[in-house]
C-alpha cells in the first residue's frame, strides 16, 4: 500500500482509538496491530506528531507493577479533528466503493 496513504489512515485509527478512551502507548499499539500489519514504532511517531500539533495530550498514572504509565488523551481540538477526518474517510471509501 502507498506509504503516505497508510500513514494518513493510521493517524485516523490512532485518533479514533483515543476517541473511545484514554490509552497508554502499548495498549494502543496492540489494539491497532491486532487489526493492521504495522511497525508499531511508527505509531509512536504518529502519537508524537499529534501531541506536537496539540491533538493529543499525555498524563502519567502511577502503576503498582512497573513504570508510571503515560496515557494519551484527545484534546478538544483533537476530537474535532478526529470527527472531521472520520467523516472525510467515510465519504472517501463510499466513493471508492462505487468506483471499484
Amino acid at each position: 500500500m502507498n506509504a503516505q496513504f497508510k500513514k494518513g489512515v493510521l493517524e485516523l485509527c490512532v485518533l479514533s482509538q483515543l476517541a473511545l478512551k484514554d490509552q497508554y502507548g502499548y495498549e494502543l499499539t496492540e489494539a491497532i496491530s491486532q487489526q493492521l500489519t504495522v511497525a508499531t514504532g511508527t505509531l509512536y511517531l504518529i502519537l508524537r506528531r499529534l501531541k506536537e500539533d496539540s491533538y493529543v495530550d499525555t498524563y502519567l498514572i502511577e502503576s503498582s507493577n512497573g513504570p508510571a504509565r503515560k496515557y494519551y488523551k484527545l484534546t478538544d481540538k483533537g476530537k474535532t479533528y478526529q470527527t472531521d477526518l472520520k467523516a472525510e474517510w467515510l465519504d472517501f471509501i463510499e466513493k471508492v466503493a462505487i468506483l471499484i
Binding site: Y24, G25, Y26, E27, T29, T40, G41, Y44, L45, L47, R48, K51, G66, P67, R69, K70
Partner: peptide, 14 residues
Amino acid sequence: KDIMDDFEDHFVYG
C-alpha cells in the same frame, strides 16, 4: 527522550 521513553515502556509492557 519522548521516543526513547515510549519504546522503553513498550518493551516493559510487551
